[in-house]
């Protein structure tokens, strides 16, 4: 065993969870463990570009019941970089459209010899339901507006990579908090690692009740920019909103879009992030998205690293899945 492999395997011995369903239930130690594992795998794979054979012989299914390009591709690539086989199952409509329930679909996929299931679903709790009904490990790739743990991890990873720490930073999540799974996973992860979190957006999308979990709530973006280290601009989830929570996109952009004027109010070393896909001109203007403060494309690369780490840790926990680990 080479020294680098020793380093990789040292992390998994402390990981005990059979599934990755959310960040709310993880401890700071567990979060740090995944982040460290991701950093190590990023280095091992030459910035996620080359392959290593940690998960050879493992089959990973991507079950996507909701549209996704980025997350599905990122999970597939992460699996392949580790030498696993992947299969994709997509169904944007209801799983019942062919008369089959969601659980039956998953059980069928599992019966084909799948070891891990990556699931995205429009309904909060759907991955938890799967975890109770199938034997293989489940990774939540987004359940409605509830959680998107690997997105939260990759955002935190990207901040830590740039700034070297999370503790003591002020991170603002801007926009559609109500319908954002990215917001929830970020809130839990950032808080546990010691960051101060501000939620900023229209009062119809940012409830004051969030103060009860210890975050700051603010509806005026300009007023906080001078003290924010990181700005994470969340996409407006038009598809989840039954009635539009603000009068127009134009008014939203006027109140919350990150543009040149607002950049002038910000700290000189502010980091600009966005989980994507971004609506240029709504959450941020193109000059900000492509500017020197933006780490949006780093986030995408780091997504592969974080997902490699998550797949590896979960697969190791369900050890019998990995044939050649002796």
């Amino acid at each position: 065993m080479s020294s680098s492999e020793t380093e990789i395997t040292s992390f998994h011995q402390q990981w005990t969870r059979p599934h990755l369903l959310g960040l709310e239930e993880l401890s700071a130690e567990e979060l740090t463990l995944i982040l460290n594992q991701a950093a190590e795998l990023k280095r091992q794979t030459n910035q996620c570009k080359t392959k290593i054979s940690l998960l050879q012989g493992v089959t990973i299914a991507n079950l996507f019941f909701e549209n996704s390009t980025r997350t599905r591709t990122s999970f597939s690539l992460a699996a392949r970089r580790l030498g696993a086989d992947t299969i994709d199952f997509s169904s944007s409509g209801s799983s019942l459209s062919k008369g089959e329930t969601f659980i039956d679909t998953a059980k069928n996929i599992e019966a084909m010899g799948v070891d891990l299931i990556v699931v995205r679903h429009r309904s909060p709790g759907a991955p938890h339901l799967l975890a109770q009904n199938v034997r293989c490990g489940i990774l939540n790739a987004g359940d409605g507006p509830h959680e998107h743990p690997t997105q939260g991890l990759l955002d935190i990873f990207s901040i830590r990579e740039r700034l070297g720490r999370i503790e003591g930073l002020t991170v603002a999540l801007v926009g559609d908090i109500a319908f954002s799974r990215t917001a929830r996973s970020n809130i839990w992860g950032l808080q546990k690692l010691g960051a101060h979190v501000i939620l900023c957006g229209p009062s119809t999308l940012v409830s004051r009740d969030w103060e009860k979990v210890g975050v700051e709530v603010c509806h005026d973006l300009d007023s906080i920019l001078h003290r924010v280290d990181v700005l994470n601009l969340l996409r407006i989830q038009f598809e989840r909103q039954a009635t539009r929570p603000f009068p127009s996109v134009h008014e939203y952009a006027w109140l919350y879009a990150m543009n040149r004027r607002r950049m002038a109010l910000a700290k000189p070393d502010i980091l600009i992030m966005a989980p994507g896909p971004i609506n240029r001109g709504v959450e941020l203007t193109p000059d900000v998205a492509d500017g020197s403060h933006s780490i949006i494309l780093d986030q995408v690369t780091n997504g592969v690293a974080v997902r490699m780490a998550a797949l590896w840790l979960i697969a190791q926990r369900n050890q019998e899945l990995v044939p050649s680990q002796t």
Binding site: S94, L96, P124, G125, L129
Partner: peptide, 10 residues
């Protein structure tokens, strides 16, 4: 049971 054994929104 098959109606209840579904995603919460269904």
């Amino acid at each position: 049971i098959e109606k209840k054994m579904q995603e919460l929104d269904q």
